[in-house]
């Protein structure tokens, strides 16, 4: 994903560089922490309305929902980060995104904002905990808050494994 974006930076039109260098994020929260995904990957945002649990999958797979006739899996981002399962209420939100050619939903506490940040402001994830480096593409600061950029591919991969 990042590569594709970088390629666009090569464009020669000088006036466009400033805009291209900007990155629009949908920011959402899990507990106190804010995370973001690039806005172009987001397909829709839905209120949590339950999901059909899938047996023999990891605990962060909350199940599947019917999205206008297509079955879409829902991932519990809190559980994916190892903070235990979310206890969803009507106020919880599912962000439906396209990852590769698949559509997936991510269960988060709330969607907070649309942020515009500069690519130059993206920091590398500090080495250390493997969960962080695995699941985050980078970290960006917005209005003094740290926003983790979610690596969607990593989040949804290996969902079955040795459940």
């Amino acid at each position: 994903m990042m590569e594709a974006l970088d390629m666009r930076d090569d464009a020669v039109d000088q006036s466009a560089i400033a805009a291209q260098n900007a990155l629009q994020l949908i920011a959402f929260s899990i507990g106190e922490q804010t995370y973001g995904v690039e806005i172009t990957t987001v397909r829709e945002i839905r209120a949590w309305n339950g999901a059909t649990p899938l047996p023999n999958t990891r605990d962060y797979v909350r199940g599947v929902i019917n999205l206008r006739g297509t079955i879409v899996p829902i991932f519990d981002l809190r559980a994916r980060f190892g903070d235990g399962k979310t206890t969803p209420t009507k106020n919880h939100v599912v962000v439906v995104m396209s990852v590769g050619n698949k559509w997936v939903g991510i269960l988060v506490d709330a969607v907070s904002d649309i942020l515009t940040v500069s690519r130059d402001d993206i920091h590398n994830v500090p080495e250390g905990n493997s969960i962080d480096t695995e699941l985050l593409n980078g970290i960006v600061t917005h209005e003094g808050r740290m926003v983790g950029l979610i690596d969607l591919l990593a989040v949804v991969s290996s969902a079955r494994a040795d459940a």
């Binding site: 899938l54 047996p55 023999n56 999958t57 599947v64 297509t70 079955i71 879409v72 899996p73 698949k102 559509w103 997936v104 969902a159 079955r160």
Partner: peptide
Amino acid sequence: ENFERVEG
């Protein structure tokens, strides 16, 4: 289509 094969 959007996920993967699930056992059973």
